[in-house]
Design a protein around this nucleic acid. Sequence first.
DNA 1: GCAAGAGTTCAAAACGTTTTAAATTCTGTT
DNA 2: AACAGAATTTAAAACGTTTTGAACTCTTGC
Lengths: 347, 347
Amino acid sequence: MATLKEIGAELGLSPATVSRALNGFPEVNKHTVDRVREVAERLGYRPNRVAQRLVTGRSGMVGLIIKIRRDMSADQTFFEMLTGLTAALGAMDTDLVLAVDQDEDPVTPYRKLLERDILDGFILNAPLPDDPRVTFLQEKGIPFVMHGQTAPDVNYACFGIDNAAVSEDAVRLLTSLGHRRVALINGQSRYAFAGDRLRGFAAAIAAEGLHVPEAFIATDAETEVNGYTHALAMLAGRHGPAPTAFVCASTLVAAGVMRAVKDRGLRVPEDVSVIGHDDALPRMDAVGLEPALTVTRAALRDACVPLAELLVTHVKGAPAEQRIERAELIVRGSTGPVPKGGETPWR
Amino acid sequence: MATLKEIGAELGLSPATVSRALNGFPEVNKHTVDRVREVAERLGYRPNRVAQRLVTGRSGMVGLIIKIRRDMSADQTFFEMLTGLTAALGAMDTDLVLAVDQDEDPVTPYRKLLERDILDGFILNAPLPDDPRVTFLQEKGIPFVMHGQTAPDVNYACFGIDNAAVSEDAVRLLTSLGHRRVALINGQSRYAFAGDRLRGFAAAIAAEGLHVPEAFIATDAETEVNGYTHALAMLAGRHGPAPTAFVCASTLVAAGVMRAVKDRGLRVPEDVSVIGHDDALPRMDAVGLEPALTVTRAALRDACVPLAELLVTHVKGAPAEQRIERAELIVRGSTGPVPKGGETPWR
DNA sequence: GCAAGAGTTCAAAACGTTTTAAATTCTGTT
DNA sequence: AACAGAATTTAAAACGTTTTGAACTCTTGC
């Protein structure tokens, strides 16, 4: 494997100049740059990463710790992110080191990996409202980027979507269609995103001068079965008039809700409108539903490149940047005008 | 972070001696070793991995490439291995770099990762009978260890179980119980292990002077449904007298087979014996079945430490070692004597 | 008192890069 | 012709470890 010294020897240049030429420093002669490039190319030069790292003090590796549930069930989300992240990081000359969290205590795996002293930073996901990992890493001064955020205003690097806006957009679409009784089937409350969704939902509902009784706000794991069960209970009308529209935490939940609507002998969207949030996971296709699902959409995979960028630049010294994007609203067949007689709001 | 020089300065020693003391070289004075250890401890010394790697020429990182199916379905196997491998490698001061294979061509992801020039070797799994990855890596002279093997006799580092013996043990147990009509529900033929299992099965059957018609050997993905479907078809007796015993590729398949047996109105083990192979995956508990499943057992996780060892030593220059162990045979309630009238072999 | 040998320790080189500070060459101005 | 200043290049240090070959200290036996 060719080295800087070898390239330099061939051209009668010092390794220093060769290094600068290849790294695009402005002070080196254009002609020299060309010659160096040519020789480097011909010799198949690749910088020795280890040597680079020794001198820059960075390792070029970041950590991702995955949480495995007791039953070892793997989730799609994880593979989707893994695929995108390795690609995005690879493009930035950074490698992903993986470790598995089997512990109860959420910070120990981070501590362990840090002790090995080879990581420049971490990628965190699934933020909790008061995430102990954040406290820990900030205390230690370790760079990290969070996918999502633990609270509306934070001072660490993060990338995600505005989850309050997700609910607001959904509610606004529905109320503009005349709906007055809008139910929410939310994700688990221990995750920060569910809090944001609830907040946005409540705000949008209040802004319309409406009210949603507690019985029509469910908080549960995002599964098809849970969507089905909660929707069925709400449609039964035991706690007041049935909703004419559902805002769902995911396409999977929405699929369950739609099944419940149909099982009740109702139609989507004529009798009940359904809207979900779409992470664009391969196996949960919103368009494949019948009718095609109206969604707020933000492809999980699109987060990988920004996450990688935010982390790598931060590691290199840039200040922690927060980047929160707005999810797209895609109106399809599962939402329609409020049915005749469904315009009365909950009291 | 303390360095060798700092420790040396504190004791009036050169970094060279400190290095040797900490690395257990024999020529250094015991008293010195103690003093060095004490100071290193007090200063919280950790060797700088990057510096170590620069001088030894090794990176201390190995690669694992995971293959993700189009539908992104994650398999348990993967998480189990990931957990075990990160732990085992970590204990040997080695890190695991992950990449994802989305390509059709099986070697491109390896080539890509190699170009980044940071890996000492690879861990391969799910060997195919003529695995192109093996050819590729051997050509390039990159160390690797295979979990399993592509053929009975190979010259690369590998660790696994004797899959022919797995079938042989199963068949021998069943024939010793008087069974003469033993069916096989094997895994997908594209994997090398399925070939070994079939070979062992055929050999053991032949050694008993028996014969198994083609219709009673199934080759399919190892799912519960497939076990159920194939067993049901075989029990229907369209292709000859029903088997009195099933050898199954996994506990999941065996679960399907047992369900089929019961749905046919038969009992396990009175009418039909069932035996499976148990990888000891958390969600596929052989003991949880009713009756508890007789198995050949080799915990997948037990492979992680040997795999890590074999690879790391090989990277450091040791010759490639093949280690093939025999799976354990655990007799439980799902196997019993051949039922009355079931002793006639297939013709 | 000295040589041989074992037991310890050390200085220096090496790994391949980046970076600092200094040196050299070139260009234009007086 | 001299000089300032810009443009370009260089030597050397630095990163922290391992390793080579030499050097030093202590025994031991004569």
